[in-house]
Structure formats: C-alpha cells, structure tokens
C-alpha cells in the first residue's frame, strides 16, 4: 500500500501505471485465486448436480432444477450482494468465492448434464449388460467420457468466472478492478491508462486460459476420437 501514497506527486499517466505495477500484480493474484477457488467449488457442487439432472428421479430433479434456474436467472451482482450484505459472510473474499462458486456450479451442472446426455445410450446399456450396477456404470463408463466432452465448455466457464471476479469490486475485494479504481481516484487524469492496463491483464489471463484449455482438450482426447 505504501507505494500508493508515495506516488501522489504528479507523474505521467503511463509512468504512474508502471510505478504501481506491484499493486496490479497483487490484484491479479487475487483475481486468479478467486477464479480458481470458485471453479473448484463450482465443480464440487456442479458435478453431482449435473449427474442428478441427467439421472435423478422426480424428487431429486425437482429440487436441483428449480434451484439451478433461480441461480442462473439472478445477476451475479445480486448473488454477491446477498452473500455479503444479507448473509453477512465475511471476509469479502470468502463471500465472493462462495457467490461465484455457487453460480459457477449452476452453470457447470449444465455443462456436465449436456456432456452426460451426449454419451450414447448404448454405452450405459452395454455397461449394464456386462453386469455393472447403475452407479458403477455412471462412474466407470459414462463419466469418464462425459468429463472429456465437458472440457470445451470450461473455456467459456473459466472466462466468465475470471471476468466476473471484477464484480467482487462491489464488496471491496482488493482484486484487479478494485485496485484500478483506487489508483484512478488517486490520479483521475490516469483513468484511461489505469483501466486499460487492468483490461489488458484480464485479456492476457482469459486468452491464456483459453489456450491452456485447448491444450488440455487435446491431451485428454480419446485416440481416434469418439466413434
């Protein structure tokens, strides 16, 4: 924080941004952490939810589906605000992780449901014909294929969560955009430079994640493709 106060003397605007680079780096670290924990939480909740939506009975589906619809129909800003202001989850970083994670779960469940449903019915049937129980068939035959097919869906999901960490600004999490805003209020003439710098960092992050997932997708592909 010290460097922020030291920089109060007039500086060229790009110079100002460069001088505060450490501040951006910290913000980037927090944005990345927030993304990572949210995606993990989303996976832990979203995978079982997706399985329930694909295979569940009327009661389990009757619970999971409407909850998913409600979460997906509510702005992430409102979800973050409810978590932090209404439920009083603290610190703000935890509130943002929970909100982004639960929302991500609602979307990941759809990725997994779609992937599961894209696995041909014959796979389940053949597994059952060999004598596997339904649960074993899901675990050893359907899910290994469904998880591979869900990888491309994560490109989108990662990008959305990463970008939406910026909305944690609303509850004061010191992530990238919040820090940019703080810098901007220190030197208002540097508004363009500060926000463009932050945007550039976000862009580099989303771009790298997308390429990374493409590489991952090639790595986990079944040789010869799906038949």
């Amino acid at each position: 924080m010290d460097s922020v106060f030291l920089s109060a003397q007039p500086l060229g605007d790009w110079e100002f941004v460069w001088q505060q680079r450490q501040f951006f780096v910290e913000g980037t670290r927090i944005a990345v952490e927030l993304t990572f924990y949210s995606i993990v939480l989303g996976f832990i909740l979203g995978l079982p939810a997706g399985v329930v939506e694909a295979y569940g009975g009327p009661y389990s589906k009757g619970v999971v589906r409407p909850v998913g619809v409600a979460i997906r129909g509510t702005p992430i800003l409102v979800i973050i605000a409810i978590t932090y202001f209404a439920f009083g989850v603290s610190p703000a970083f935890l509130a943002a992780t929970l909100a982004l994670g639960v929302r991500s779960a609602a979307y990941q469940s759809q990725i997994f449901r779609g992937a599961i449903e894209s696995v041909e019915g014959g796979q389940m049937e053949a597994a059952r014909a060999v004598g596997l129980s339904k649960l074993d068939a899901i675990r050893h035959v359907v899910l290994p294929q469904a998880l591979r097919r869900s990888v491309p869906g994560f490109q989108n999901e990662f990008t959305i969560v990463l970008k939406d960490t910026s909305i944690a600004y609303a509850i004061g999490v010191a992530e990238l955009l919040k820090r940019s805003y703080d810098l901007f209020s220190l030197q208002t003439s540097a508004a363009l430079e500060v926000f463009l710098a932050a945007s550039l960092i976000y862009f580099v992050l989303t771009f790298s994640v997308n390429r990374g997932i493409e590489v991952l997708n090639d790595r986990v592909a079944i040789p010869g493709g799906n038949y």
């Binding site: 796979q123 049937e125 597994a127 060999v130 035959v141």
Partner: peptide
C-alpha cells in the same frame, strides 16, 4: 443375471474411452 448372460449389440457399444483390452477388463 447379466453376468451370466452375455450380450452383443448391433452397434457394438464399445466403451469409447477404453482400449480394446480395457473394454474387456472393466467387467
């Protein structure tokens, strides 16, 4: 029952993510 009764399908239904050998070993 299904262990005692083997079934072969028209469209094979091999487990797409497993090798030929693994298809056999899974059961």
């Amino acid at each position: 029952l299904r262990r005692q009764v083997g079934m072969v399908f028209q469209d094979f239904n091999l487990f797409a993510h497993l090798t030929a050998l693994e298809n056999v070993t899974l059961g």
